[in-house]
Amino acid sequence: MTSTAMTAALRVEGLGVCYGALVALEDVSWEVSRGELLGIIGPNGAGKSSCYDAVSALMPRSGSVYLHGRDISGVPAHGLARLGIKRAFQQNAFFDQLTVRDNMVAALGGTASLGTSILRPLAAGRHAQALREQAGDCLARFGLPPECHGLRPDEISYGMQRMLSIALAYGAGAEVLLLDEPAAGLGGADMAALSALLRSLKAEGVALVVIEHHMDLIMSVADRICVLNLGRPLACGTPAEIQRDPRVLQAYLGGEP
């Protein structure tokens, strides 16, 4: 089922970004529905990261952003997570001195308030234990086994760090999850685990938007792909349509139709 047959979870219309006189993004529009993965690809400098930063309200932009049909163009970056729009950045970012589990606890909302800890210590203790159990369940869901939960992030493999980054972005749940090159540096079993995770999140109804350079991965998991080139939309369609599009072949995929 394509997004045209469903109500879009997230839709952007006429997105534009300028750095002074430099036009980084111009008239970019796309949408993604629940249970769908939209891939965003393009050569280096195509505007992919600018597109994510614009959608995430991290930079001045033109155009409009809609969540389930509601115009959220005026919502600042810090308010998007409360609406269910979450983002994992290209570079891993952790609390290095905390354990993997405590990083997840922080992503879920941290510990009880100081007042509760002082006035109701038993309740605070139960709350902390419940959060630790919830964190353990979340980590296991994202492919992080219990034996790594007590380690620091720099003590686990790079593949696990990438999964932890996605888990922390997702937190207690997401309507829309934006991922910036989640497969960077991965291969073999780690790549297979990431592919399985993306399919699982789709099956659970999450709307996924994924920037990716790893063509084998994005062609296998995406429902639709938007191709950017020089800050402008070049093509949008199913993976099969994108692979046959002569404009894409010339600009990015490096071949002839």
Rank of each mutant, 00 (worst) to 15 (best):
L197C: 06
M6R: 15
L178I: 15
A135K: 01
E241V: 05
G39M: 05
L178D: 15
L83K: 11
A189Q: 12
M163T: 06
M1K: 14
L37K: 05
S113C: 02
C148R: 03
S195A: 10
L22V: 15
E155L: 00
T2W: 08
H149V: 00
A251C: 10
C148F: 03
Y66T: 11
T238P: 08
G110S: 12
R247M: 04
I242K: 02
S49K: 12
G14I: 01
G150Y: 02
L164W: 01
L249Q: 02
E147T: 08
T111L: 04
G109V: 06
D96K: 09
V227S: 00
I218E: 08
I211V: 07
S29N: 03
E181T: 03
T116I: 01
P43I: 00
L122Q: 00
I41W: 01
A81H: 15
A21Y: 00
M160D: 10
L119H: 06
A184M: 12
H214W: 07
E181D: 03
E36F: 03
C226D: 04
L119T: 14
S117F: 06
G74L: 10
P257E: 13
P153N: 05
G47Q: 03
G231E: 07
R61V: 13
A8G: 13
Q97N: 12
R152C: 12
T2M: 09
G14N: 13
V210T: 01
A128F: 01
S29C: 05
L80N: 09
L10K: 10
V105L: 02
S3V: 13
E147W: 01
R244Q: 11
L253G: 04
N103K: 03
P60G: 00
H213S: 06
G74N: 13
S117K: 02
A207I: 10
P233C: 06
Y66G: 12
P257R: 10
E26T: 11
D53H: 14
S220R: 09
P60E: 07
L230P: 01
L179N: 09
V105Y: 03
A21W: 00
S33I: 02
S117M: 09
P43R: 06
I211F: 03
L114C: 11
P121D: 00
R34Q: 14
L186Y: 08
Y170I: 08
P145Y: 01
V32P: 13
P239W: 01
L98W: 07
F94D: 06
L198D: 10
L177E: 08
S3R: 07
H213C: 02
N103D: 06
D137W: 10
G115A: 05
I40W: 10
D71L: 14
D102R: 11
L197W: 13
L58V: 13
